[in-house]
C-alpha cells in the first residue's frame, strides 16, 4: 500500500475515523397517470386493476403498464375485496419508519380475478396458522380515516373458506388458468 508521509507536527494526533455529514433531501412525487386513478377510487373504497390491452390479464395495483409487453394500460376494472395468499413471510424485523407489532405477516395477496399479487399485511391470524392458498378479505380503515393514500386497507384477514391448493395459489394459478399446467 502507498506510504503516507505525515508531517511530524501532527504525527501523534488521534486519527479521525469518521465525520458526520447529515444529508436531507425532499422530493415531491407525482403518482403517475394510472396510480392517480387508482388512488382516487381507493379513497372511495374501491380497488381498481389495470386490464392488459394485449391479453386481458388483470394487474393490481395498476401501474399503467403491462411489463410483459412494454405497453400502456389505460383500461381499469373494479376488483373484489377478497383473494388468497400466494406466499408469505413471518417477519421479526421492524420496518424503518413504521410501527408494527412483531412478528407480523407480510403476504403476496392475489385478489380474486387478478393475475399478479401485491405485498400487504395479514392479521387476525396467528403466524403458525398462515398458509399458502389461504383465503383472505380486506379490513378497511374506519370510513373517516380513508383518503387518497395507498394505506386505506389496515390488513387482510382469513375468511375461513377452504384454501386454494398449492398448485393454484399465487403465480401458479395463472399457469393453471392459462394452460391447465401446474408446473410453473
Amino acid at each position: 500500500m502507498t506510504e503516507i508521509q505525515i508531517p511530524s507536527s501532527i504525527r501523534n494526533l488521534e486519527q479521525v475515523q469518521s465525520v458526520r455529514t447529515p444529508i436531507r433531501m425532499e422530493y415531491t412525487f407525482t403518482p403517475g397517470v394510472a396510480a392517480q386513478t387508482y388512488l382516487r377510487e381507493f379513497g372511495n373504497k374501491k380497488i381498481l386493476g389495470n386490464v392488459s390491452p394485449v391479453d386481458g390479464a388483470i394487474l393490481v395495483p395498476p401501474r399503467g403498464a403491462d411489463p410483459r409487453y412494454g405497453v400502456l394500460c389505460d383500461e381499469f376494472v373494479e376488483m373484489p375485496h377478497t383473494g388468497h395468499v400466494g406466499s408469505f413471510c413471518v417477519t421479526n424485523v421492524p420496518i424503518p419508519g413504521r410501527e408494527l407489532e412483531l412478528p407480523y405477516i407480510s403476504a403476496w395477496i392475489f385478489l380474486d380475478g387478478a393475475d399478479i399479487g401485491f405485498l400487504n399485511l395479514v392479521a387476525e391470524c396467528p403466524p403458525e396458522e398462515c398458509r399458502i392458498g389461504m383465503r383472505v378479505e380486506a379490513v378497511w380503515k374506519p370510513d373517516d380515516e380513508i383518503g387518497m393514500t395507498a394505506e386505506n386497507i389496515l390488513y387482510w384477514r382469513p375468511t375461513g373458506e377452504p384454501d386454494l391448493p398449492f398448485d393454484e395459489a399465487g403465480v401458479r394459478g395463472w399457469h393453471v388458468r392459462k394452460h391447465g399446467d401446474s408446473d410453473a
Binding site: S87, C89, T149
Partner: peptide
C-alpha cells in the same frame, strides 16, 4: 433499501422480507 415508496404500502423490511416468500414456495 426500505426508503418509503410513495403511493405504496410500506411493508417490506429489507431484502429478507422480499425473498422469504419465494423461499417458502
Amino acid at each position: 433499501l426500505s426508503l418509503k415508496q410513495p403511493f405504496q404500502v410500506s411493508i417490506n423490511a429489507g431484502a429478507g422480507g422480499y425473498f422469504s416468500p419465494i423461499i417458502r414456495q
